[in-house]
């Protein structure tokens, strides 16, 4: 029996997109299986973020401005960081677990399915806390954001880029697992460092620290959004940010797909001898 070769089935619109929607629908359905846990987890994250803002509120009641930043900027900074992290972790919740999945050989099932393997892995999990993060981002925007159409579009763009920075930076860090085996620790540290620096105003860092934030730990592109995008479109910053995002995406994909060739379906094999 001859098997006909069909290199592409439905393509993106009628093949991949319905698959993604079903994935997200089921993720949400799975999350809602445990109603109380769902509400509590998402709610606690929301509260957690609010508490940080309260600290900043106390700080700004003593010093009205930090390097030109006001309380509203800090709040929007948190909105962009938590909101971006939130949507990425809701729709592509496995991005922070690549190192774990790789080291434990859990990519097998995704690789036997005829869907783009990275997309399939990423979309197969939805983080519950992330829903709280995302809603927090939206709430802060409603509270202090610029509600004009331009303001809304700029905020949405900031969310989009922030989420992609999170996703591809963490993916790149996690893909180290293909090369160095157990990369869970280093990937988590990189991710945590990145996350932390996205919640402090960029302008309090000078010199080497600042340079680092726009190169190896590119959290600066997120944390400068309130100034470079939300206050008003800054051409120079936005083009650099877009270029940096493209470069980061390319690096992450390169690391992941090169690494996948070395995937050994779990290090169990190595552990045995």
């Amino acid at each position: 029996m001859e098997v006909e070769k069909r290199s592409r089935r439905g393509g993106f619109w009628i093949g991949t997109l319905p698959f993604l929607f079903t994935c997200w629908k089921l993720n949400l359905a799975g999350a809602m299986e445990f109603r109380l846990s769902f509400l509590m987890t998402a709610g606690m994250m929301f509260l957690n973020n609010i508490i940080w803002l309260l600290f900043w509120g106390i700080f700004f009641s003593r010093f009205p401005s930090v390097g030109g930043w006001e309380l509203a900027d800090i709040m929007l900074l948190w909105a962009v960081s938590a909101g971006g992290f939130g949507w990425a972790n809701m729709l592509f919740g496995n991005f922070s677990r690549i190192a774990y999945l790789t080291a434990h050989g859990e990519l097998d099932v995704y690789m036997t399915q005829p869907k783009p393997v990275l997309l399939n892995i990423l979309a197969s999990r939805m983080s519950l806390t992330a829903i709280g993060d995302f809603l927090f981002g939206l709430a802060i925007y409603v509270y202090v954001g610029d509600h004009s159409l331009g303001g809304l579009l700029r905020f949405l763009l900031a969310l989009l880029m922030s989420g992609l920075f999170f996703l591809f930076f963490t993916l790149a860090a996690g893909s180290l697992a293909f090369f160095i085996g157990n990369a869970e620790g280093i990937a988590f540290q990189l991710f945590n460092g990145f996350l932390t620096f996205t919640t402090y105003p960029t302008d309090i860092f000078k010199g080497l620290g600042r340079m680092m934030l726009f190169t190896i730990l590119p959290a600066g592109f997120i944390s400068y959004m309130p100034i470079g995008l939300l206050r008003g479109w800054d051409n120079g910053f936005m083009f650099t940010a877009a270029a940096a995002l493209l470069a980061l995406t390319a690096l992450a994909l390169l690391l992941f797909y090169t690494g996948l060739r070395r995937y050994s379906s779990g290090n169990r094999m190595a552990m045995r001898s």
């Binding site: 098997v3 698959f19 079903t22 799975g30 859990e106």
Partner: peptide, 30 residues
């Protein structure tokens, strides 16, 4: 791999394709 995947089926005893928290009918849909 992807083209081949349309034509083969795999059952790995240890690695489940089913979604743990959802009924099998949902996995069928996926």
């Amino acid at each position: 791999r992807k083209q081949l995947a349309y034509h083969i089926g795999t059952v790995f005893g240890q690695k489940s394709q089913l979604w743990y928290h959802l009924p099998p009918s949902d996995t069928f849909e996926l």
